[in-house]
């Protein structure tokens, strides 16, 4: 499979960790954390062929109940990816008696309404971007807690995202991805907006999840049931969508622009698109680039100026 071909050698660590403690079996209890983009601005700007907010919610709830039907012990969590504040909507701070899907649904909808009430002032302000990094951090902390209580649970994350990537979240999102990779948490992503998300592509690629941008949004539930519902064990037997191209280019610290060649400070690894004399992150004076490596080594090394 192309997935196999796409894996870099560094990925082996994560793969090793995945199989090391316990082999994958069919009847593992799992924990699914759903992250849904609730940016009101994006959902009010839907184009003709794109799915409306209310139907997206309906599809997501149906998917969640299908997930619960797989196994009685399966656990669910729901986090809104909202401008300004992401929030764990289910299980809420209230008594978690909602074992019925209808109760879960009601709880989430009530909280969503309370959460999205003061939207009016945000509607026009596109400068407020949803905090995907915050929501992912929340999800990982929550998973960490559940894993402490139930060490055998198999966690995974499903991100349904419509807003564009925000470049200054790059480092925080990468931190989340690496932490998920270390804990063998799959991140599946579903893009409901018009553009691909390089951040989420990397998230799925590095954690072994599935990245999908459905061409027919009306069939969202169908995509979700075939791709995201099967657990990692069942996925081994399925032919699932693969990424043929992952954008691993970096963005420079100075202009936040994507570059495929750049200059990196040898002390702190900050990326610059042009030559700078002083690194803006660590304040080190930087010598000019040398051309050949060996003669430089042979010279006596002068103490670098601080």
């Amino acid at each position: 499979m192309a997935w196999e071909a796409l894996r870099s050698n560094r990925k082996i660590e994560a793969d090793g960790a995945l199989s090391a403690p316990r082999g994958l079996t069919q009847d593992d209890t799992s924990l699914l954390v759903v992250l849904l983009d609730t940016n009101p601005y994006i959902w009010s700007q839907r184009k003709q062929k794109e799915l409306e907010w209310s139907s997206v919610l309906e599809h997501v709830f149906n998917f969640m109940s299908a997930y619960r039907l797989l196994k009685h012990e399966n656990r669910l969590a729901f986090i809104s990816v909202h401008p300004g504040e992401s929030k764990l909507l289910y299980p809420g701070s209230t008594d978690p008696t909602g074992t019925d899907m209808e109760d879960i649904k009601n709880e989430i909808v009530t909280q969503l309404n309370a959460h999205t009430r003061n939207e009016e002032l945000l509607k026009s302000n596109s400068g407020w971007s949803p905090m995907l990094s915050g929501a992912l951090s929340l999800a990982l902390c929550y998973i960490n807690r559940i894993q402490r209580e139930e060490p055998l649970i198999r966690p995974r994350i499903l991100v349904l995202h419509a807003s564009p990537d925000v470049s200054n979240q790059y480092i925080s999102i990468m931190n989340c991805i690496f932490s998920a990779q270390k804990k063998s948490i799959l991140i599946d992503t579903c893009i409901l907006g018009s553009n691909d998300s390089p951040f989420l592509q990397q998230a799925s690629h590095l954690t072994g999840g599935i990245y999908l941008k459905p061409s027919q949004q009306k069939a969202l539930l169908q995509y979700a049931l075939t791709c995201y519902l099967p657990d990692p064990f069942a996925r081994k037997f399925l032919s699932l969508p693969t990424l043929t191209r992952v954008d691993f280019r970096a963005s420079c610290f100075c202009h936040k622009e994507t570059i495929d060649m750049g200059f990196v400070c040898s002390v702190c690894l900050s990326i610059y698109c042009g030559i700078t004399l002083v690194c803006q992150t660590c304040g080190t004076r930087l010598l000019q680039m040398g051309t050949a490596k060996k003669p430089l080594v042979k010279k006596a090394l002068p103490a670098a100026p601080k």
Binding site: A5, F248, R249, L286, L301
Partner: peptide, 20 residues
């Protein structure tokens, strides 16, 4: 911690894309 003996410099690097 980087010792004062090591040189500090800008290293030119390329960020290739994965293609199948």
């Amino acid at each position: 911690p980087s010792s004062s003996k090591t040189e500090t410099r800008l290293i030119k690097m390329g960020f290739p894309q994965r293609r199948a």
